[in-house]
Simulated scan of single mutants.
Amino acid sequence: MNDFSAYIKQLTDERQRVRTEEVLDWVSSHFSNLEPRIAWNQPMFTDHGTFIIGFSASRNHLSVSPEQAGMAQFQEKIAKAGYGQSKMLFRIRWDEPVNYTLLEQIIRFNCMDKAECTTFWRK
């Protein structure tokens, strides 16, 4: 978690800090092959130099960004989980549970879908 410690420390709301750290720790432990990094002031995970998933804490929620292809692939499941969403991200409110099964499916999809990708973002 050392890679994200500065990001976590700057979160002044304890609920945000605890939840964000919990999610980042979960991704790190379940996907040890992914490289944690901070870019654009947001914690994210990459694989062979390509973006897999990113997170951002805001006042009311934790944003989860799996790129547009990841959103399109899981749009119905994200809606069924009750998360608000846009074209590029979905939002987990601080007072609702994290659907780790869905998060795992999204990360696995992006890893597989981008296995041959040589750019940071999909083209």
Results as ranks from 00 to 15, higher is better:
6 A>Y: 07
10 Q>V: 12
13 D>T: 14
13 D>R: 04
13 D>P: 00
15 R>A: 07
19 R>F: 05
21 E>P: 02
24 L>V: 09
24 L>W: 02
26 W>S: 07
26 W>D: 01
27 V>D: 05
27 V>W: 04
34 L>Y: 14
35 E>I: 10
36 P>D: 12
36 P>Q: 03
37 R>D: 09
40 W>C: 03
40 W>D: 08
41 N>T: 07
42 Q>R: 06
44 M>I: 04
49 G>F: 10
50 T>Y: 13
52 I>S: 02
54 G>L: 09
54 G>N: 10
56 S>E: 06
58 S>A: 10
60 N>P: 03
62 L>V: 13
62 L>C: 15
63 S>K: 10
63 S>Y: 08
64 V>S: 01
64 V>D: 00
65 S>N: 08
65 S>P: 06
68 Q>M: 10
68 Q>A: 15
69 A>T: 14
73 Q>N: 05
74 F>L: 05
80 K>T: 10
82 G>W: 00
82 G>I: 07
86 S>A: 09
94 W>T: 09
95 D>P: 08
97 P>A: 12
98 V>A: 14
99 N>Y: 08
101 T>A: 13
103 L>T: 00
104 E>N: 01
104 E>Q: 04
107 I>G: 00
107 I>Q: 01
108 R>C: 07
110 N>M: 11
111 C>G: 03
111 C>R: 09
114 K>C: 00
116 E>V: 14
117 C>Y: 05
119 T>I: 15
119 T>Q: 14
119 T>Y: 04
120 F>A: 09
121 W>Q: 13
122 R>E: 08
